[in-house]
Each structure stands twice: as C-alpha cells, then as structure tokens.
Design a protein around this nucleic acid. Structure first.
Length: 594
RNA sequence: GCGGGUGUAGCUCAGUGGUAGAGCGCAACCUUGCCAAGGUUGAUGUCGCGCGUUCAAAUCGCGUCACCCGCUCCA
C-alpha cells in the first residue's frame, strides 16, 4: 500500500476483495448457493500466486539446502494422534456465554460469587431500539442499586451497538429482585450476566472414516500439518540416511472450526500451511560433543550453522532465515516481530516468535517460530508406545570420554534447571537420571524448532502489500482511479504480457504469436490483442504483471534492419520502455523471475 | 453462537408499492501506432434465497443464507 492509499481499513479491504473477485484471484466458496462460511476459492490468478509462493517456500527450504526433507501426509489420520498432541482436549473446551454481553468464558474457569439476582423483562431507548427478552444480572455485594442499573445500561448499550443510542437514555423495564445467592458459578465474572448452558466448542472438524458412521469411526480433519511430521518422524529418519540436525517440511491443507472467521481469507476454516519441523540435539548432547553450548548474544553471526549451537542459536537462526525469505518475496519492509514472553508461552515451549505483517485491518501474524523442546515427539512416544529416540554415534563416542564426575556435573546442572522452572512440574530426579543414562549411550528424542507459516495469509499479505491506487488525469482533465498490483516479479501470477500493437495487421499478430510461443514454455504469459495498447497495459498492471512486450512495425523491419526483430519491453512500476532483440528476451527476463 | 450493518448487471452504486437503471468493465468492428485514446454496435439481471401481505413487491412483514464490524485468536 502506498501512503496515499492509506485510509479507512474497511474500505481498503473492500477494494481488495472486489479486485480479487473481479480479476479472478479469490472467490467466495459456493457463491451460487449463497456461499459457505469461512471458506474461499482461488481463481486462475490466485491459483498461480499460491503456486508461486508454495514453490518459493519449497525451494528455499528444500532445494537450496541439504538438511531438509519433504513430506506429503494425508489429511486424515488416526484420531489418537490428536489426543497425543493435545488438540482433542484444548480444542474442545466447554464454554458458557453471558446472556447479557454474549462474552464467552470457559465453563471450568468461573469463580463462585454471591449477590442479589436482579431481573429485567426488557429495555428500550428513545431511538426506537428495544430488547424483548428477560435479562438476568447478578448485583454484586456492596454494589449500589443506581450504579448497578447504570452498569447494566452501559453493558446493554455496548452489546447493542449504535442502535441503542446513549447508555443514559436506555430505560430498563420490569425490574425485579428474585433471590440472594452465595457461591454461584452461573454468572459472568465481570458483567454479572447470567450464563447460558455449557456447550462444547470443538474447533476440530469431525468426520467418519469408513462406511459406518458410529462414534468408533470418528476422526478429524487435521487442525495442523505438523503432527503428521512428528508421527512419521521415525520413518523419514530411518529411510533417508540423515543425521540430527535435520528438518522435515510439509505443505498442506488444515481445518479449524473457527468461531469467528474474519478478515477475508485471513482467518478461514480451511487453510493451507507450510510447516517445517527442524530437529536438533538437546543442549546436553551439544555440550557433551562440543564441550560447551554457544550462547546467543545480540549481533551473533547466524550465517552458517555451527556444531556448538544449542536450541537458542537454532531458534534465532530460523527467525533470520525466515526473515530473509519474506524479504525475497517483497514483504521485507512490512514485517514486525512479537517475542512471546514467559506468560504467553505454553509450558513445554522454550520460546516463540510471531512474524507479523501489516494488513489494512491491523498487524497480524503470518508465521510463528517456536522452540518446542522434545514435547511433541515425547508425547507421541508416550501415546503410541513406540520409541522415537534416535541413536547418535558422535554423541556416544564423546560421552565415552567423560569421567563420572563430569557426567554427574551435567546431571546436577539439569536438576538445578528443573527446580528453577516457573511453569509445569520439575522432572523427578529418577527420570532425569534415566534420561542421562540413555543420553550417555547416544540415545535421545530430538528437540524441535518449528517455523509454521500460513500460505493463504501470505498470499493475502502479498496482495495487500502490492495493492496500489492513485488518481490520474487524462488529456481532458478527467480524473480516473488507476489500480496497480506491485507484485515482486518472483510471485506475480502472470510474468509477461505480449501484445501486437494493432490486431488488424496480420503480420503484427503473427509476429506477436511467435514471441508468445517463445516465452510461454518458460513463464506464465498472457497474449492480448484487443482494445488499445494503453488499455492492455492497464489491464496487466491491475493483475500485477511485471513486464509487457509490444510488437510494432519496427519489429517487422519497417525502419530498417537495426530495429528489425526488436520489441518494446515495458516495466510495470516505472513505465520505462526499452528496445530488446527478441533473441535476448529470455536471457533478460528469466533472471528477474527467479 | 449473540448484537449491529449490508445484499440490485462482472465491479461500484441509484432506484421507498405500478414496464429494471447509470457509470465503469466486457464483446465485436473501424483507426500506422505506446500507457484505462476516439467512434459505431452489442450482450448481461428470477433485485441473495424462501414464505407471506397486496390487484400489484427490488420496495412492506416473517424466516433463512452469506458477507462486513464487534465479542482474541495465534497459520
């Protein structure tokens, strides 16, 4: 977005949504049937854009490195996986809703409270707004009746939006005291409104696997792609001759029954993730092999991984790598970082960084990079009963050189760390010693760094960043709004437009088709011979095509042999034109698209 | 799920009970010419969907669906 287009975020998003539909980037799912909540379809250009992003990720993570392997796992899995991962529990809380404010609380998180139960048969305001249902609210102990009424009016006004008008003008109807309660868990802790029945809010999409549809056949569409990587970790390790540290990456669909899908494709119920699980040695193993673990300090060199890196350096390394990736697709200058503090973190997580991006509706998360220790693999080891330890030859050899005092020092260091933990219970000493026994023999469950990115969010970020709109006056001084998508050439859905200057001259058309056929095997091109040349440029600008090629009479040799077989190459953002020999086109364009 | 708002041509919108509209876009043709150019011609709608009120509904009522904004999720 350029500065001149910054304005009302809702209007800005509406323009983007409208352009996406009009030009075939993104459509509402099932539109002819009235749509389908929280689900979106990608049209021809959207499909190309997503493919380019997927390819860029796959290339940066797999092709350009030697230490990461790909996986393409099924969306359906054994439901036991979701018990082990914690999704069945954390995604299925019982929730209760406040009947006054409609705020939701976890049913098991309501503190008992006492007070006087007050009922109103309804409410109305001078503006014509009225509420026709009974509202039950707890007047807390010591709360003055007038300040209580004022509070109820304010809450009603807040919930009704603009329609109810000013809180002071709301008239509460049919006030009645019903009873005095102690230790009730049926009222919202803040508003005091009566809570509705407890209902399960299951964020996972349930389905049935197999021809019968009984409870025994229930499974889920995966809520994230990561768990398949953990579940297949041992297979990949055993079949690929890799050593820790190494990673497994995967791109695929995931599904969540979002309570509030919103912001266009940003929060959808069906979405695509690009996840990497990068497995590293536990810090203790690094210390045994290298003698010490390198500490992170500001400005440390993250260029090339080193043998003495512990989880912290690896975590920083991946934040750096992912930042470089976003820079390479043109999002470098709109990124922000949020380092989760200790209170935000799950008990098993050591650190987590959100990479945020500026959208018209706010700065929101594109990718999370978490250091998750050995939590996931250990959970699957426990639930499946299968060992997910790996054997590390180098570690075994290094450990064999330690004497008993050195080994005991490592154990003591870990025991002290366990005692110092602020979240979760410390691991019992016996378990710590058992873990070190395995470690000294060269066995451990790898730890993991997880960069997890949302593809649909990335596509939306790219579109929102590229969106530019400005006013331009034509010859008659009539103002027109011009829209340009300033995509990085690497991600642009169409790379090049090819145009004969005029379409009623068969020689021009034939030559243009020739150029089109020359480029087409190497890049997504678009041939257009209709309307004026200016309009054709403008159409391509609007879908973000970075280059345009025009075939004119000079190309045919009308002005002599010097210009024969040269074309006009036009660059989208500057509008600059240059004469290029047809034979030089590929050599000139291809490096700009990689 | 709850409240508020919106829904008319591909897009943006006008149309307050009496024959469905505009601008832009789109398509075709003309133009030796490079940034939404000019001219001519043309196509496009169960007025989100359903039920009701009425002689008559895009318009009024009820229901329903989707989207937007708020209730905080974290890809």
């Amino acid at each position: 977005m350029s500065s001149e287009t910054k304005q009302d975020p809702v209007a800005q998003m509406e323009k983007i949504v409208s352009l996406c539909k009009r030009r075939g980037f993104i459509y509402q799912s099932s539109e002819i049937y009235g749509g389908c909540g929280g689900v979106w379809d990608y049209g021809p250009l959207g499909a190309e854009l997503k493919r380019n992003l997927r390819d860029a990720w796959w290339r940066a993570m797999m092709r350009d490195r030697e230490d990461i392997l790909g996986l393409d796992a099924a969306i359906l899995m054994n439901p036991a996986i979701w018990k082990a991962s914690g999704h069945v529990d954390t995604f299925a809380d019982m929730m209760r809703e406040c009947t006054l404010t409609n705020k939701r609380v976890r049913a098991d998180h309501v503190e008992p409270q006492g007070g006087t139960v007050m009922q109103f048969t309804g409410a109305k305001s001078p503006g014509g707004w009225h509420l026709n249902r009974t509202v039950t609210v707890l007047m807390k102990k010591g709360e003055h009746i007038e300040s209580f009424r004022k509070r109820v009016r304010a809450l009603l006004a807040q919930n009704a939006g603009d329609a109810a008008g000013k809180p002071d003008e709301i008239e509460l109807l049919g006030e009645q005291k019903t009873e005095v309660l102690e230790g009730s868990i049926d009222f919202h802790p803040e508003s005091g409104g009566l809570l509705g029945e407890a209902r399960p809010f299951n964020l996972m999409l349930r389905t049935f696997l197999g021809p019968t549809a009984t409870e025994a056949d229930v499974t889920y569409l995966r809520p994230e792609t990561a768990q398949a990587i953990f579940a297949q970790f041992k297979n990949v390790f055993d079949s690929s001759r890799v050593k820790v540290p190494f990673g497994i990456g995967q791109i695929g669909k995931a599904f969540r029954n979002e309570v509030t899908p919103k912001n266009f494709t940003f929060r959808s119920r069906e979405f695509e993730q690009m996840e990497l699980e990068f497995f590293i040695k536990p810090d203790e193993a690094v210390e045994i092999i290298s003698g010490s673990v390198r500490a992170w300090s500001e400005g440390a060199d993250l260029g090339a991984p080193q043998q003495d890196w512990g989880w912290e350096m690896w975590h920083r390394y991946w934040v750096d790598q992912r930042t470089k990736f976003y820079e390479s697709i043109g999002l470098g200058d709109v990124l922000e970082y949020y380092w989760q503090n200790k209170d935000d973190l799950a008990h098993y997580a050591k650190a987590c960084v959100d990479i945020l991006c500026e959208f018209p509706f706010g700065t929101e998360e594109l990718e999370g990079i978490a250091a998750r220790g050995d939590f996931d693999l250990s959970q699957h080891q426990k639930h499946s009963g299968k060992s997910l330890e790996i054997f590390d030859e180098e570690l075994k050899a290094a450990a064999a050189k330690l004497d008993d005092a050195q080994k005991e020092a490592l154990v003591q260091k870990r025991l002290a760390a366990e005692q110092a933990k602020t979240k979760g219970d410390p691991l019992p000493e016996a378990d710590v010693r058992a873990w070190f026994d395995r470690l000294f023999k060269g066995f451990y469950v790898p730890h993991v760094i997880e960069p997890s990115a949302g593809l649909d969010r990335m596509a939306l970020a790219i579109i929102a960043k590229a969106f530019d709109e400005f006013e331009k006056a034509d010859d008659k001084g009539r103002k027109e709004t011009i829209t340009v998508l300033r995509f990085h050439p690497r991600v642009a859905p169409v790379k090049c437009g090819v145009f004969p200057l005029l379409k009623n001259k068969p020689e021009l058309v034939a030559k243009a088709r020739e150029v089109y056929e020359l480029l087409r095997p190497h890049m997504n091109c678009f041939y257009d011979e209709t309307a004026s040349i200016g309009r054709r440029y403008a159409r391509q600008d609007e879908i973000g095509t970075p280059f345009g090629i025009t075939i004119d009479f000079d190309t045919l040799g009308e002005k002599g042999p010097d210009l024969q077989d040269t074309v006009t190459l036009r660059e989208r953002d500057s509008g600059a034109q240059q004469r290029v020999k047809i034979g030089d086109l590929l050599g000139k364009l291809l490096p700009l698209l990689r």
